[in-house]
Amino acid sequence: MSAPAAAQRVAGDLELLPAAEHPHLLPEAVRAALPEGAWTLEIDPGLADTQALVDAAHVPLDGSANCVVVAGKRDGEERVAACVVLASTRADVNGAVKKVLDVRKASFLPMDRAVEESGMEFGGITPVGLPGGWRVLVDTRVAGSEWVLIGSGVRRSKLVVRGADLAALPGAEVVDIAMTPPVAST
């Protein structure tokens, strides 16, 4: 079975494999929550960070997404969410995300907590297979993407899934939470 051309485009030079046929590349929680038709690809764990993979494998930045975990408090209650934005943007943590979570201040969840509570590896956290009760804030640009490359829960692989499938994950909300990073002056 070959991958659709649009899915292959976001994988750059890397070979796409049907995710359901390659469970050894995915943690159990991710395997259990895989959207139908998802693809995976094996990578060097040293290339798990988005920019490294973009540079090494000609993966398009606008076809890649990042998942960051944030938290904030309101009335003593902690509110945690995974935020999914295109790699060409950044999550507007203290603007849009703070507003959606209805908290006074939002910040990135400390790495050790994000890893422990998600059951995933740092640099590989994905919205697929997150713990129940976590909100998943999917930026509208991600939800509108035909296919997007995203972490797989481990650093040795990635997933390629439809944006609509991310928007349909348990706990997912499609919201405008991304801001385009400022252009560097030359």
Rank of each mutant, 00 (worst) to 15 (best):
M1V: 11
M1Q: 14
M1T: 14
S2Q: 12
P4D: 11
A5H: 07
A5F: 03
A6T: 15
A7E: 03
Q8S: 06
A11P: 00
A11C: 03
G12M: 02
G12I: 00
D13V: 02
L16S: 06
L17S: 12
L17P: 11
A20R: 14
E21S: 15
E21N: 10
H22F: 10
P23I: 05
P23Q: 08
H24N: 15
L26R: 02
P27W: 04
A29D: 13
A29M: 10
A29L: 05
A33W: 07
E36T: 04
W39Q: 12
T40F: 03
T40I: 10
I43W: 00
D44G: 01
D44V: 00
P45M: 08
P45I: 11
L47Y: 13
D49I: 07
D49F: 11
Q51H: 01
A52F: 14
L53Y: 00
L53K: 00
L53M: 10
A57W: 03
P60G: 13
G63K: 02
G63M: 04
S64N: 02
S64C: 04
N66A: 10
V68I: 11
V69K: 07
V69Q: 09
G72C: 12
G72Q: 04
K73S: 14
D75I: 07
D75Q: 05
V80Q: 03
A81V: 14
L86V: 05
L86P: 00
A87T: 12
A87P: 09
A87H: 11
R90F: 13
R90S: 10
A91D: 00
V93W: 15
V93F: 11
N94W: 06
N94G: 02
N94T: 07
V97C: 05
L101M: 09
R104H: 15
R104P: 08
R104Q: 13
K105Q: 09
S107E: 09
S107P: 08
L109T: 10
P110K: 07
R113W: 10
R113V: 14
V115R: 03
V115H: 01
E116P: 00
E116F: 06
S118T: 14
M120G: 00
F122E: 12
G123E: 13
G124K: 02
G124A: 10
I125Y: 02
T126E: 04
P127W: 01
G129T: 06
G129C: 07
G132P: 12
G133F: 09
V136S: 03
V136D: 02
V136I: 13
L137P: 01
L137A: 12
V138S: 03
D139I: 15
T140D: 08
A143V: 04
S145R: 03
W147P: 01
L149H: 06
I150G: 01
V154H: 00
V154F: 01
R155T: 13
K158S: 01
V161S: 05
R162A: 12
A164N: 04
A164Q: 06
D165V: 06
A167S: 10
A168E: 05
L169N: 08
A172Y: 12
A172C: 09
V174W: 04
V174F: 08
D176Y: 11
D176S: 15
I177E: 09
V183Q: 15
S185V: 15
T186L: 15
T186I: 15
T186R: 15
